[in-house]
Design a protein around this nucleic acid. Structure first.
Ligand SMILES: [Zn+2]
Ligand SMILES: [Zn+2]
Ligand SMILES: [Zn+2]
Ligand SMILES: [Zn+2]
Lengths: 166, 166
DNA sequence: CATGAAGCGTTATCTTATTACATCCGGGTT
DNA sequence: AACCCGGATGTAATAAGATAACGCTTCATG
């Protein structure tokens, strides 16, 4: 597994995103097959929509695109597909944005910290373990046992800091 | 300043909460006076409502109580008061819960991590600095500069782990 | 007291999310 | 083939969270 900092840099830097998305989709299909879960058309298309950028999309943004392509146009259509994908670790939900983003390396550390660039809106996943350890230690001293944690940062990515994304 | 772990333990343990809330309110009033900001009746009552427990309340929960006490019954009434209090560091917003909680030690570390007990629903503030440092370091390696971070953990507090809150 | 900014209240609207229920489809059973 | 079942999909209706726009009141200040 590559360094987490590489993932971060790679997400924000210009790159062959087609390739990036294709790999993630193949990986997702393989993982679902293993688990005996069905990657139906709506689910597949939902994942593709999220993979088309490194941004996070709101459920209604996803829904609009699905509807435009002939799928149902009621909220549960999008929410169900997203819920399924989140449940299988292929998509993450960002609390700060009320939005969803595709996971680019499912399976590694399924509880990453998220880095959200306020300029280009891209979202990167950072290794969550060390942060979670720090959190658990502090909480543990006060007798609190952490079960799940949400760690989301807003800031500026290297590309934007260097003069804007485009 | 006491250890962060003391704050955590104190929040979840049974204690004289009247006293706890009174201190926070006095502290808040003093800070606002210093800043020349006005603690109007709605704002004061909103803070009191949040201080009445260590829980986080939704904006509409707050609104219901305000309305019942003769204040306005439209959403902006609650949202405005909450926004003011958040802006002055007297109340925190919890993304995970779409809710607000009173700050019990304003001024210390105004960017704490939150510990939310899933059993008793109380919310404690933990020292955020070490966690933020860990996050900044990891992000920095990938060229990302963190500006603000949301750190919220769900788990079980010592009191509940020992056999329930009541 | 005049004046302007801040505060409070209302209506209306928007965004996000869930509940409830009907229908469809694929696979296994009789 | 006819039957049954569970999962997936679709719809309508509604709940929950948040903001925009506007007018009246309050209050510090000169
Ligand atoms: Zn991921
Ligand atoms: Zn950027
Ligand atoms: Zn605080
Ligand atoms: Zn508890």
């Amino acid at each position: 597994m590559p360094e987490s900092s590489d993932h971060i840099a790679a997400t924000f830097a210009p790159h062959d995103h087609q390739e990036c998305a294709r790999r993630a989709l193949d990986e997702a299909a393989a993982r679902l097959a293993e688990q005996g879960a069905r990657l139906t058309p709506v689910r597949r298309r939902t994942l593709e929509i999220l993979l088309e950028s490194h941004r996070a999309l709101g459920a209604y943004e996803v829904l609009d695109r699905l509807a435009a392509e002939g799928f149902g146009r009621q909220p549960p259509v999008a929410y169900r597909a997203l819920e399924f994908l989140v449940g299988h670790g292929l998509v993450h939900r960002l609390q700060r944005l009320n939005a969803f983003t595709a996971c680019l390396h499912p399976g590694d550390d399924h509880h990453p910290a998220f880095l959200i660039c306020r300029s280009c809106d891209k979202v990167a996943e950072a290794a969550g373990v060390p942060i979670r350890d720090a959190l658990s230690e502090i909480a543990g001293k006060g007798g609190f046992r952490v079960e799940r944690a949400t760690i989301e940062a807003v800031g500026l990515c290297a590309t934007c800091a260097a003069g804007g994304p485009a």
